[in-house]
Write a protein that binds this DNA or RNA. Sequence first.
DNA 1: GTATCATGTTACTTAAAAAGTTACGTTAAC
DNA 2: GTTAACGTAACTTTTTAAGTAACATGATAC
Lengths: 171, 171
Amino acid sequence: MCLYLSHEGFSCMLVLLEETMRTDSRLSRILHVLMHLGETDKPITSEMIGKMLNTNPSLVRRTMGLLRQAGIVSSTKGHGGGWYLEKQLAELSLADVYAALGEPKLFAIGASGDTPTCLLERSANTATLGALDAARQKFLDTLAAQSVGDLIKQSRDEIAAYRARTPVETE
Amino acid sequence: MCLYLSHEGFSCMLVLLEETMRTDSRLSRILHVLMHLGETDKPITSEMIGKMLNTNPSLVRRTMGLLRQAGIVSSTKGHGGGWYLEKQLAELSLADVYAALGEPKLFAIGASGDTPTCLLERSANTATLGALDAARQKFLDTLAAQSVGDLIKQSRDEIAAYRARTPVETE
DNA sequence: GTATCATGTTACTTAAAAAGTTACGTTAAC
DNA sequence: GTTAACGTAACTTTTTAAGTAACATGATAC
């Protein structure tokens, strides 16, 4: 299924993760899935996506369901069913994807009370939240400047560059 | 202890929090404490700081200990002991404070595998991590552009502005 | 010197949210 | 009607700071 193989020859679905961090990886995972969906014309099942992401179909359905609500993908049941794109990836920015996920909490850092009565505390919170807001804006801007189609294009360039370095053996 | 009172007349140590989020609030809390330390010449005990922050002395010691390691504050034991500044707040940037805390994990978002073999997955991760890195840089730059002394100055301006609006009642 | 105050440190529990898992109902293709 | 696939609900696991409790150590006051 994984159309882009590394030079080791393993597809993404065979890679075992030893990750143990419990950070929110939905954005990068979904981007990965969308790119695969853009490279095929047949629906991909939750089970196959689960193998790509090293997780189980139920979690895939839960997350892909958010994309369906946003009109980015659709799904069909039954034989030959699965997930497929509803939008052109060239028109789909990474910010759109992040928004479709519900703009998940970006920061592990925050401020203490909402509107403290201590003016010094308020100043501390304002400064902290201000820096976080500036960072969030930068994050969103960076996401908005790229489409999922751009990512595919970059991957193709990488492959071409690799092939140019290492010519295919002909026998 | 709280030198800057709001117009309600409550000091920070009397405010009850109903917060339940478990985000890392050490940066804003420590900024708050540092400003108070800058406004007095006597050491402040962990117990008093705990009341300021609506938490307990043990947690205060744990967190303030990170600042001591960075040379920002010192502490003395026994009667009249507590925490006091080792540096001029005007020379202390918010980035210094963040660094003293060990640059705590900034994001709740991450990417999946470290170096996936699937090129599409790698592309997804690169894009995600790139946006996060840009955001982190913006965060650090914003912190570096301000000193804790600046925050105090801002608070003083606010107080002056408030007093200008609402003259003190004289009898 | 002893009582008290305060830090230093360790060990444990709590809380939040995504991830991970299990189970089962529903729908579509064959 | 059997099988494949999504839809959904309920539950457990994981991670980390926060929160808590306890006690040793050191410094001041008397």
